[in-house]
């Protein structure tokens, strides 16, 4: 579905991605792991069109989307749920969801989808009229995912959804992701530092090491890989 070839990205003169190759197959959960500064968020932001690629290609459904405008990427069906949630703090929960649906026009469908994501994250329906900035960390993460879902994406990219959350809440979020993937056939590209949890739920995984893909393989195989265990799982 998504195919990245030899992608190179620079911040000024500093190289951030040194020609990475990556594939996300339809209906899978693909994990992108790595330490701080390895280039995970850069990869997502380049796909989303926030950062420009210097070299390489990003293909989505056989179409070249490299360096397209971010609004076109969203229209094509790729949405990013960014690191640190990046909600609109002084908009209500409902308004945040409406912004998520910015590129859609069918009002009845949008309202239906709001009801739908609120059943997916019931805690949010109690907070519907509250400002997003007043929510707890876990609720904010749920809202960020719900807002991304409002774009009716085919590919959902999540940047560190478990960051700063209590283990129990993180588990809830991962459960929801599995459900979205299995029951609704949503393709997911998951960036995580929590390698354990991410590998356990992903079909494929890539490990980024300072701008290059180090290891790649099936999620459960990597979980057993001694090198990965030593470096990323701390055992």
């Amino acid at each position: 579905m998504l195919k990245i070839e030899e992608l190179e990205v620079y911040y000024g003169y500093v190289i951030a991605l040194k020609g990475i190759n990556l594939q996300v197959k339809e209906k899978t959960i693909t994990a992108l792991l790595g330490a701080n500064g390895a280039g995970k968020s850069t990869t997502l932001n380049t796909i989303s069109g926030l950062i420009r690629a210097k070299k390489g290609r990003i293909n989505y459904k056989e179409k070249d989307i490299t360096n397209e405008d971010s609004s076109k990427i969203v229209k094509a069906g790729i949405i990013q749920c960014p690191e640190g949630r990046m909600l609109f703090p002084s908009l209500t929960v409902k308004e945040n969801l409406l912004v998520g649906a910015y590129n859609r026009n069918n009002r009845t469908e949008i309202l239906q989808d709001i009801e739908d994501v609120l059943t997916l994250f019931p805690i949010l329906s109690e907070r519907k009229k509250q400002m997003a900035g007043t929510l707890s960390g876990g609720e904010q993460q749920m809202l960020a995912i719900a807002r991304a879902l409002m774009a009716a994406p085919q590919l959902l990219m999540l940047d560190e959804p478990s960051l700063g959350l209590a283990p129990k809440i993180a588990e809830q979020i991962f459960d929801r992701l599995i459900m979205l993937n299995k029951e609704r056939n949503l393709t997911i590209l998951l960036v995580e530092q929590n390698a354990n949890a991410a590998l356990a739920i992903s079909d494929y995984a890539y490990i980024l090491e300072t701008g290059k893909i180090g290891l790649t393989g099936k999620g459960k195989e990597l979980l057993q890989n001694p090198l990965v265990r030593q470096k990323y799982l701390g055992t």
Binding site: S71, I73, K75, P82, F88, L91, Y102, N103, A151
Partner: peptide
């Protein structure tokens, strides 16, 4: 809708871009 987009952009420009707002 545009009014909402303006408020969203004012609060977080990058997030607004990610939601497909020009």
């Amino acid at each position: 809708k545009t009014g909402l987009a303006i408020r969203a952009t004012a609060q977080n420009e990058d997030a607004a871009k990610l939601m497909g707002i020009k």
